[in-house]
């Protein structure tokens, strides 16, 4: 059967295997065993062809076939990434023959594509007014696309790249980086020079701006801030106003934290109409519905986390918000939940003492207090309750409630545990009010009130791009931190939101959060175990350098541009740096904070300098980096390796990722070929594979195999340098409640400010029951002479070419190619 390919213009042409082979060959250039890879992809591609396949389907089929083979060798991911980038080049720039021609095309089309974006109302018109396009175009370096893994190219293209009104893609990856860099230089005196500096860093993946910035940077709708943190006041006007604000912030993209502690409890009196309140739960459900209503055509729900203090009368119902069963009108299926816990509560848990719940209407100052002041006032309210002078209260055991929180956490992964007193007592911006909550991802620590919706602006240094000759490049880390802080500071003057209180707070505090990602990627390359002193010391040293450089740069910016408006009266203005607040917190808590206090840099010099002025109220926060970690091609935040192989979902379907560091380490020892099938069979767990040496097993433990205390120790050592917080995902094998209580008590004792999702190891894991899909054998059985690599590799054997009529009918790639038993 002859196969014809339908071109974009509708014309048909005969399928040209040579042309496809050449494209695959180019994509495999420079890789070890490239000829074998080309043959393997080409012969498997034949299985997926059918008459009338479009050129776009053909491109996708080649990529999917390459991806299917990632389990044999991560090099296939490189091939898939290159093939995908090439399809983007073709659509945006047209055909090209050589790398030189590609670079020339990049330069040639850059200005016209930006102009088109402006003409169509997609991009900020200042982009075509303020920049020297010749200089920018010449700096574009397409070879940097080679840094992207397949998932990175997909994420950039699908989530961040600008498309014309007619759906045409307008950006190749390097246009995208340059556009973001330009969009963050609009307030500079020499915008071209700064755009080039920012472009150099981001296009080399040395640091990345966070999601909202990458979505909206340089566009006509520059909502660039990442996190919005607000509290709902106890009046119906403000509840309505908050609902409106959530709608607008969701429309603009941005994670939201929302505290509901101030809302009076269910049954609490309402004087104006002589009735009683329904409490906060129904209003939370209303906002939960808003998150689904404003959802970009239903494709992307809004993202929000509700916070409440655990002395609120309705806290037991708050714990049920994420339960699957029960009244759906008293559930939040979309929004997340977090609990805002005091030192007083943790002490009462330790001492097995009672805990009292109150109606906020009767204890109105409690939500504004923290630390020892909270404890004192709380004790007074307890006395009033016992004396019968409060209308509503409930007495329970502190341990009983702690267990209830942890049982809910086990079952629903909510509420996340966050410690209000560690956060408030360590705050350097404590002159501008109480911090009532953290944000969607639990890394932000900023105050808010009725006039202030706090805002944070994030970026993350990619640690894996800061390793040179097997060691951290401290000078490069410092450089990245300094440039990132300037870029973040610029963002504040450029971004806008639809909530006046957010813009106001952003201007008054200029809060930024510089974090890191790729920690596990780095320690694996160093051969360290996540749960080792080497790793703990390394994260300590990394964050000390990031913290020092970020603070120093903010002080420099204050000299150049002036301090942030709320600087006077802040702890910065008293010469205090984040590390100093550990002792201050310990003194207030009256219980030791169990964290190493080693320092390496000249902090006395910096203490003097910060007194003179700071440009930003906060400087550091470690975000989850779930999406930008994909673009950077590294492990997210401080997270451990979840598995050596795992499934990733993209808009083009699921595909398999394999830990390249492990493959490399096994290859160095000549073990990869002999162990890879065992690794796949064991779902990415190498611990029971005999031939793998113990040292590698220690380095490549997965999340559920590590001690949960190692997550806490890494967080605590990083936290001591960070003025905001860390999105600390937790992974637990144990379901023992005493263990769980000890672990979360341990987090508080180490001064960890917040924890994020709790991932419980599933009780049962799926067995590898499916017979191995062995396309190699299928092809060989039909006579292929192609040399085989990887799983199913066979020696010898004969020929091929599968008839087109044998092509699967289920589309491309995964699930599309022949399946065992079908």
């Amino acid at each position: 059967m002859n196969i014809t390919v339908v071109k974009r213009n509708g014309e048909r042409e005969p399928y040209d295997a040579n042309k496809i082979n050449l494209a695959i060959e180019r994509a495999a250039e420079g890789l070890e065993d490239s000829i074998a890879w080309v043959t393997q992809i080409a012969s498997e591609l034949e299985l997926t062809l059918f008459d009338g396949i479009s050129t776009q389907q053909l491109d996708e089929a080649v990529i999917q076939v390459a991806l299917q083979n990632v389990k044999d060798d991560p090099a296939f991911d490189v091939v898939a990434a290159r093939l995908l980038v090439k399809t983007i080049y073709k659509r945006v720039l047209g055909d090209y023959e050589s790398p030189e021609e590609l670079k020339a095309l990049h330069a040639q089309h850059f200005a016209e594509n930006v102009h088109r974006g402006v003409d169509e109302g997609l991009l900020d018109e200042r982009l075509v007014q303020m920049f020297d396009f010749d200089r920018l175009a010449q700096a574009l370096e397409p070879t940097r696309d080679g840094l992207l893994k397949y998932i990175g190219v997909v994420t950039l293209n699908n989530r961040y790249g600008i498309k014309g009104r007619n759906g045409d893609p307008l950006e190749v990856p390097q246009y995208f980086w340059m556009r973001i860099a330009m969009g963050l230089s609009l307030n500079e005196q020499d915008p071209t020079a700064h755009a080039l500096t920012f472009y150099e860093k981001m296009s080399k993946l040395e640091y990345l701006a966070a999601g909202s910035t990458l979505v909206n940077g340089g566009t006509s709708y520059p909502q660039l801030a990442n996190c919005f943190v607000m509290e709902m006041q106890d009046d119906i006007e403000h509840i309505a106003k908050t609902t409106r604000d959530v709608m607008w912030l969701t429309k603009g993209t941005g994670g939201i934290g929302l505290a509901v502690t101030k809302l009076r409890a269910q049954g609490s009196p309402i004087r104006s109409n002589n009735t009683s309140s329904t409490g906060p739960i129904p209003f939370m459900h209303t906002i939960d519905s808003v998150l689904r209503a404003v959802s970009r055509g239903g494709k992307k729900f809004g993202a929000l986390c509700f916070y409440i203090e655990n002395w609120h009368m309705d806290f037991p119902e708050f714990l049920d918000l994420r339960q699957n069963s029960g009244d759906p009108y008293r559930r939040t299926r979309t929004a997340n939940t977090a609990v805002w816990i005091s030192d007083e509560f943790m002490k009462r848990v330790e001492n097995d003492e009672p805990w009292y719940l109150f109606d906020p209407l009767e204890v109105q100052d409690l939500n504004e207090l923290y630390g020892s002041a909270f404890s004192k006032r709380y004790a007074e309210y307890v006395e009033m309750a016992e004396a019968g002078t409060l209308n509503m209260f409930k007495k329970i055991g502190a341990r009983e409630q702690f267990k209830a929180i942890l049982i809910s956490l086990q079952g629903t992964s909510h509420p996340w545990l966050t410690w209000k007193d560690t956060i408030n007592n360590r705050a350097l911006n404590n002159n501008s009010g109480t911090i009532h909550l953290s944000n969607l991802c639990t890394e932000i620590c900023l105050p808010q009130d009725v006039d202030n919706v706090s805002v944070c602006n994030l970026a993350s240094i990619n640690l894996s791009q800061h390793v040179v000759d097997g060691a951290m490049d401290w000078a490069k880390i410092e450089e990245s931190a300094r440039i990132a802080v300037r870029q973040l500071d610029n963002l504040i003057d450029i971004t806008r939101s639809s909530v006046a209180e957010a813009d106001y707070s952003n201007e008054q505090n200029r809060a930024v959060g510089l974090g890191v990602m790729g920690f596990t990627d780095v320690i694996e390359r160093f051969g360290y175990s996540y749960e080792s002193e080497e790793s703990y010391d390394l994260i300590d040293e990394i964050m000390e350098h990031v913290s020092y450089a970020a603070i120093d740069e903010s002080a420099n910016l204050a000299q150049e541009r002036g301090s942030y408006p709320n600087f006077e009266g802040s702890r910065w203005s008293q010469g205090i740096v984040p590390l100093d607040t550990v002792d201050l917190t310990e003194a207030d808590r009256g219980v030791p904070i169990e964290v190493n206090r080693t320092t390496r840099l000249d902090w006395d010099r910096l203490r003097v300098k910060v007194k003179g002025g700071m440009r930003n109220a906060t400087l550091m926060a470690i975000a989850p980096t779930a999406s930008i970690g994909l673009v950077a091609g590294t492990t997210p935040g401080l997270d451990p390796q979840f598995s050596q192989i795992f499934s990733r979902s993209t808009s083009s379907g699921k595909f398999l990722e394999i830990n390249r560091n492990l493959v490399e380490a096994l290859r160095e020892r000549g073990l990869w070929e002999s162990t890879r099938e065992d690794i796949l069979r064991s779902q990415g767990d190498i611990q029971n594979i005999e031939s793998i040496p113990q040292a590698l097993k220690d380095t490549f433990k997965t999340s559920f195999q590590l001690s949960p205390y190692s997550f806490l120790e890494v967080a605590a050592r990083a936290q001591k340098w960070i003025d905001q917080a860390i999105s600390r995902n937790m992974y637990l094998d144990t379901r023992d409640m005493d263990d769980l209580m000890s672990i979360y008590m341990g987090a508080w004792k180490r001064g960890v400010k917040t924890t994020y999702y709790l991932h419980m190891k599933p009780r049962h894991t799926a067995e590898q029951s499916t017979v191995k899909v062995n396309k190699a054998e299928q092809i060989n059985a039909q006579g292929s002479s192609a040399p085989r690599k990887g799983f199913g590799a066979t020696t010898g054997s004969s020929t091929p070419v599968v008839a087109a009529s044998a092509a699967p009918k289920k589309g491309f790639g995964f699930g599309g190619a022949a399946k065992a038993g079908e």
């Binding site: 809004g302 979840f642 190891k761």
Partner: peptide, 30 residues
């Protein structure tokens, strides 16, 4: 329910763990 319980996917005939980051809803700010 706890999203981490949805932890296994089948790809190409193999059961493999799902990247936990796929389960997070934090990409609005990230």
């Amino acid at each position: 329910m706890n999203p981490s319980a949805e932890g296994t996917a089948t790809i190409d005939g193999y059961a493999v763990p799902v990247d936990p980051m796929d389960l997070l809803r934090c990409d609005s700010c990230q």
